[in-house]
Simulated assay, not measured.
Amino acid sequence: MIVLGLTGSIGMGKSTTAKLFAEAGVPVYDADAAVHRLYEGEAAPAIEAAFPGTTANGKVDRNKLSARVVHDPAAMKRLEQIVHPMVGAARQKFLNAARQSGAPVAVIDVPLLFETGGEKRVDAVVVVTTTAEIQRQRILARPNMTDEKLGAILARQMPDAEKRKRAHFVVDTSHGLEPVRARIQDILAKAAKMQPRRS
């Protein structure tokens, strides 16, 4: 089974691209959704212990937690040390299930794939991109998004040009869904001929 790492900066259309992979019959692991599930249960006690007052009723209050860690690299690192091993275990479970189902290709959707060294755990990387103008419009249209918040998020992400340079495949979402669907078919055809490179 070939494992594709799907990544892209905020507002590039990665979630939509992940949905289109799923629509094409590919098992897709969503790292953000996995974190959401952990925040609603398993990870909450450890996060409350590290950041008192950031949970309620056994669930993490994402806004409170975000306010606590977004401008504090040391706090962010502490949070990652709690969450990353749990996410890793969930990802492994997903891959084992995909392999058992006989899927030729599986996709792991990870926003900070390069930033966390995740490209070493996949056979090829798919980077989703668009123009800087479209990216900005999409992000600022989100609820509760400000220029300052956007700046803080982008500061944690590797620049788009660098991601595209390191990608095996690039998907441009600037021109609507149909070109993206066509590109996904093209990527799946090429992936089917690849040899796994993970050790």
Rank of each mutant, 00 (worst) to 15 (best):
L4P: 15
D72H: 13
M145P: 13
I2V: 15
R166Q: 09
D109C: 12
V28I: 08
H168V: 09
A31L: 07
D186E: 15
L79E: 00
G41W: 01
A89Q: 08
Q100N: 09
D160H: 01
N96G: 14
Q185I: 02
M145I: 10
R166Y: 05
D147E: 13
A49T: 05
P73I: 08
N96P: 07
G25L: 09
V105I: 14
A67V: 10
P143E: 00
A34W: 09
S66M: 03
R136K: 15
F114R: 06
A50Y: 04
N57G: 08
D160L: 14
G11L: 14
R136L: 14
P27W: 01
S15C: 05
V60N: 01
A31Y: 08
E48I: 05
V28Y: 03
S9Y: 07
A46W: 07
D123Y: 12
L65W: 02
D123K: 12
A18L: 04
I187H: 05
T116Y: 01
R181W: 06
A132W: 01
S174D: 13
P179N: 02
N57K: 07
E178L: 12
P143F: 02
Q135D: 04
A124D: 12
L4D: 12
A67T: 10
V171I: 15
K163P: 01
A97S: 14
Q92A: 14
A56T: 05
S9K: 14
H84K: 10
T17A: 06
V26S: 06
A132G: 00
A22Y: 03
A106C: 13
H84Y: 09
S101I: 11
L112F: 12
G13C: 13
L6K: 02
L140N: 07
V128M: 11
M194L: 15
M86W: 03
I187T: 01
I184K: 04
P111K: 04
V110H: 07
A152D: 11
V35A: 15
F114W: 10
G41F: 04
P196I: 01
M145K: 07
N63A: 15
V128P: 12
V60E: 02
A167K: 02
I47Y: 06
L20I: 03
M145G: 05
R99G: 04
I47K: 07
E23D: 11
K190I: 09
A34G: 11
G25T: 04
P73T: 00
S66C: 09
T17D: 00
A103V: 08
G117C: 06
A189E: 08
I187D: 08
R121D: 15
M194K: 03
L95P: 11
R121Q: 15
G13R: 14
G151N: 12
M194G: 10
V28N: 08
R99F: 05
A24M: 02
R78Q: 10
V171K: 08
G11K: 13
D30R: 11
R37P: 05
E48T: 04
K64M: 08
A124C: 13
P73N: 03
Q100C: 06
K165M: 08
D123A: 14
I108W: 09
K190N: 02
A97G: 13
V128F: 12
G118M: 06
A24C: 02
A44E: 02
G151Q: 07
L79S: 00
I134T: 12
A106L: 05
A46D: 11
K149G: 06
A98T: 06
I184H: 03
R164T: 00
A167E: 01
E42Y: 01
P104D: 01
V125E: 11
